[in-house]
Each structure stands twice: as structure tokens, then as C-alpha cells.
């Protein structure tokens, strides 16, 4: 097994791979991250059968926590397989924070959280805001601390899809990009390393101040979301709400009662950023 270890926010991963290439890509992209001794999760990239190590190599996604029906990926998409496996460990195994499928950025110690279905643009928006004076905290999972109620950063590689790739390349031409992974189950994917401040300050969280439900591709609009609806949508966006039991209930009700929330529709990144700034000024 070729091996790489990386610390992302509070979580440390050990990634083992039967092939060298995905490990080299990870080492290159995560080179500014700490490399821990102790790890929380093990991820394995293995051939589906022994023959598949050489012949049309096919990567099975394994690790401490697995889905029985996770489809294998071609070796060219090994980096994606590793990232998916790391996400899976968090989704199925992490119990130290309430985990929301959401993105987050911070300014002045206060945090903007964005959640929505995939395609809502929450990931791209967080990446764009990360180069517009905000600190990027994460584009996939938001971790809420059950004790303080604060958002704990989890700034793994940003995963850009399809048209977001070009948008990001023009917004941050100097950023470090991974290889273009064409024709994945989710279309074209390209990873980009978060800005330096996101990595350097990844141990430092902040209090949530505004929750947005963005929706891409609709004429610009803002709608208030009632706490009951917010609560329900966030339970659906959480992979460990039920498992955390009472701590999950208390953390989520505290969040819902203290953080204003809005649904926003937008048709371009610039429009969204302007909306966000306006709402932030008024509500946060």
C-alpha cells in the first residue's frame, strides 16, 4: 500500500492506495496541510479484483466506513475516489460535531453557512467568497460544536464541477488546481486548493451568524425561512443528527433559534455575492 496522511480541520486521515498516482496527487494538493501521526479514519483505494490492478485498473472505495454498493471508479479518477472516501468517513463515522452538508465562510469571527441540494451552488459560492475578502471554512461539511455552538472549519480541497471550473480559474488564476477529471459520474470535476489563510487558520472557528439556502438558475429573489422549516431542512442535511441524540437536538435547536435564515435565488456569481453582502450587512 502506498500511503499518505493528512489533517483537515479536526479530522485526520490515513489514505492507502494500491497505486502510486492518487497518492502523489494528494501529496501535491495537500502539501500545505499538517501530516499527523494519529489518524481518525483509514481510507483504502484497492483494485476490485487482483487483475484490476493492472488491467483497466478500477478503484474500489474502501475504509473504516463503507457503503456496500459504492461503485468503483477508473484509476484516472483515483483522486476523486480518495476524496469521496474521505467524505464518506466523515458522513458515516464523525460524531464529535453535528455535521451539516453545507459550505461556510467567515468574516470578523462570524460565520455564513450555506446549504442546499447539489447544484444549488453552495460550493462554488463559498469558493468565490473565499477570494472576495472572506475566509473559506469548507465547501462540503459544516461542523457545529455541541458545546460552544460554533462552526469548526473543515477546509478540504474544493471540488469544482463543470462550468464552475472555468469561473474559478478566472477568479483565482494563481490557485493550485488538481488534474481535470473528465466524465465522472458527476460530470467534469477539478479540485482546487483552498486559499492559504483557510489552511493556516483551520483550527479557528467562529459563531454562526447567517444561514442561506442558495438556489442557482432562478431570477434573483430573497425569501424568509421560518424556523420550523429551517429545522426540518437541516435535519435532512445532517448525516449524524439522529446518532448524536440529545446533543444533536440541543445543538440544532440552538442554531435554528439564534441564526437568521433566508432562501436566495440567483443567476450569476456576481449577483449572488452582491445579495450575500447585502443580507450580511442587514442581518448578521
Amino acid at each position: 500500500m502506498h500511503e499518505f496522511r493528512v489533517q483537515v480541520g479536526p479530522a485526520a486521515f490515513r489514505i492507502g492506495s494500491a497505486w502510486r498516482a492518487p497518492i502523489d496527487q494528494l501529496a501535491h494538493l495537500y502539501r500545505d496541510y499538517p501530516q499527523p501521526d494519529f489518524t481518525d479514519f483509514t481510507v483504502r483505494l484497492e483494485p476490485t479484483t487482483w487483475l484490476r490492478r493492472w488491467l483497466r485498473p478500477s478503484v474500489a472505495i474502501g475504509g473504516d466506513y463503507m457503503l456496500p454498493d459504492a461503485a468503483p471508479l477508473p484509476l484516472a479518477q483515483g483522486l476523486l475516489a480518495a476524496e469521496m472516501a474521505m467524505n464518506l468517513q466523515m458522513a458515516l463515522g464523525w460524531r464529535r460535531h453535528l455535521l451539516l452538508h453545507a459550505s461556510a465562510v467567515e468574516r470578523d469571527g462570524r460565520v455564513l453557512v450555506m446549504t442546499g441540494q447539489s447544484g444549488s451552488g453552495k460550493s462554488t459560492l463559498s469558493a468565490l467568497l473565499g477570494s472576495e475578502g472572506w475566509r473559506f471554512l469548507g465547501d462540503e461539511f459544516v461542523l457545529l460544536d455541541p458545546v460552544t455552538g460554533n462552526v469548526v472549519p473543515f477546509p478540504r480541497l474544493i471540488s469544482l464541477k463543470n462550468e464552475a471550473i472555468a469561473a474559478m480559474q478566472s477568479a483565482q488564476p494563481d490557485a493550485r488546481f488538481g488534474p481535470l477529471l473528465a466524465g465522472t459520474p458527476k460530470g467534469d470535476i477539478r479540485h482546487v486548493v483552498p486559499p492559504a489563510d483557510a489552511i493556516a487558520q483551520m483550527g479557528q472557528g467562529g459563531a454562526p451568524a447567517l444561514l442561506l439556502f442558495p438556489r442557482y438558475g432562478y431570477p434573483g429573489a430573497v425569501r424568509e425561512v421560518a424556523p420550523g422549516e429551517t429545522f426540518m431542512r437541516l435535519t435532512q442535511a445532517s448525516t449524524n443528527y439522529v446518532a448524536l441524540g440529545e446533543a444533536g437536538f440541543i445543538t440544532l435547536t440552538r442554531f435554528v433559534k439564534s441564526v437568521p435564515s433566508r432562501a436566495i435565488d440567483y443567476q450569476s456569481g456576481d449577483e449572488a455575492i452582491a445579495l450575500v453582502e447585502k443580507l450580511w450587512e442587514r442581518l448578521a
Binding site: G228, F231, V242, G245, F249, T253
Partner: peptide
């Protein structure tokens, strides 16, 4: 645990979670 939230009330039942 009973937590009123605008139009509705959340009830967290400890025994079942």
C-alpha cells in the same frame, strides 16, 4: 425536551431519540 418553534413544537423523546 419540548422546544416551541414558531407555528410548531419540537418534542425530543429521550428514550427513542
Amino acid at each position: 425536551i419540548v422546544e416551541p418553534l414558531d407555528m410548531m413544537t419540537l418534542i425530543y423523546q429521550r428514550r427513542s431519540g
